[in-house]
């Protein structure tokens, strides 16, 4: 396949994944804000902006005025925000048009339809009343695209580049949430067991759609180590770092097999995944959660860039 097509597929799926994760983050932020006083709610929205790396762009638009409706409209649909969910869906569709021959008609139609639906939804401001419906719609569209991929795409290199885009992005997103919220998960003597912490923990889980899964696996036992371990090391949870990297192993393994050669990216991957599978949550906390996440993000980013080089995404 063309290097440019691999690039298009890779970004198509990164954008779709990012749009979906952004929506979850908004959802968690909204829920959190509902249960807090306005000062704390504002803090919560600020942390959403930081996780998305949009704090500066937002400040340029709204200054210090961090309120729910401003934040989610900015994140979802503001024309001045080049990383808005609408902009990502738009970028995803542009990439899909570019790689039209590499995806099935069903996948193209799912992406195109998402774009048409969301463009309509985002044509007017999102109110708090409408927010839940809007978020549901984005999630549903993402699910539809994913369904089209799984049921219609050949399991060839195109499919695996799609996987690489998805899981590099997802690992990045989960790690970012951990990076911004790590302090919530640090064992702290004073606040242990307080209701605030429980709410915060639950919120971290909710931003990755993991609250039910966690409760189910851990019988309602909320503790920071358990949650960190779940998000980082639990291969059963589809948004954990370990799950993403196990998927990447399959995707990259396929390429090595199919093309008959390994690349530098494979070496970077080995060092990254090797570390992840050998770690225990105790060792991570001993090293420092913050430092671990920082290193993981850097390595994940290096991996993405090396893949783009090795497979000639650009000349």
């Amino acid at each position: 396949m063309l290097g440019r097509s691999a690039n298009g597929i890779f970004w198509l799926f990164r954008y779709l994944e990012r749009a979906e994760n952004t929506v979850r983050l908004i959802e968690a932020g909204f829920r959190m804000a509902l249960t807090r006083d306005s000062g704390a709610a504002s803090e919560e929205w600020r942390s959403v902006l930081i996780t998305l790396g949009m704090q500066h762009a937002y400040a340029a638009r709204h200054g210090d005025d961090v309120t729910g409706a401003h934040v989610f409209n900015f994140v979802l649909r503001d024309r001045d925000n080049p990383a808005s969910v609408m902009a990502m869906i738009e970028a995803a569709r542009t990439n899909a048009r570019m790689v039209r021959t590499g995806i099935t008609r069903e996948v193209w139609e799912a992406v195109n339809e998402s774009w048409m639906k969301l463009r309509e939804i985002f044509a007017r401001p999102v109110t708090e009343t409408r927010l839940r419906d809007v978020l549901d719609a984005v999630r549903r569209q993402a699910t539809q695209v994913r369904g089209a991929i799984e049921s219609t795409m050949l399991r060839n290199d195109i499919y695996h580049f799609a996987g690489i885009g998805t899981f590099v992005e997802r690992a990045d997103n989960t790690a970012r949430i951990l990076d911004v919220k790590y302090y919530v998960l640090l064992p702290s003597l004073s606040a242990v067991g307080s209701s605030l912490d429980n709410v915060q923990w639950e919120n971290v889980l909710r931003s990755v759609a993991g609250e039910r899964a966690y409760r189910w696996l851990n019988a309602g036992q909320m503790d920071p180590r358990g949650i960190a371990s779940f998000l980082i090391l639990d291969q059963r949870f589809p948004r954990s770092l370990a799950f993403c990297y196990a998927q990447l192993q399959a995707n990259m393994g396929f390429l090595a097999n199919e093309y008959g050669f390994e690349t530098e990216a494979h070496a970077i991957y080995q060092s990254g995944y090797g570390r992840l599978s050998a770690l225990t949550i105790e060792a991570i906390f001993e090293q420092g959660l913050h430092q671990f996440i920082g290193e993981f993000l850097a390595c994940n980013n290096r991996l993405a860039q090396q893949i783009q080089r090795d497979y000639r995404f650009v000349e």
Partner: peptide, 11 residues
């Protein structure tokens, strides 16, 4: 190589 070639993921 005296041809017109396209950039693919394999070369």
């Amino acid at each position: 190589g005296g041809r017109v070639a396209m950039r693919t993921t394999r070369g």
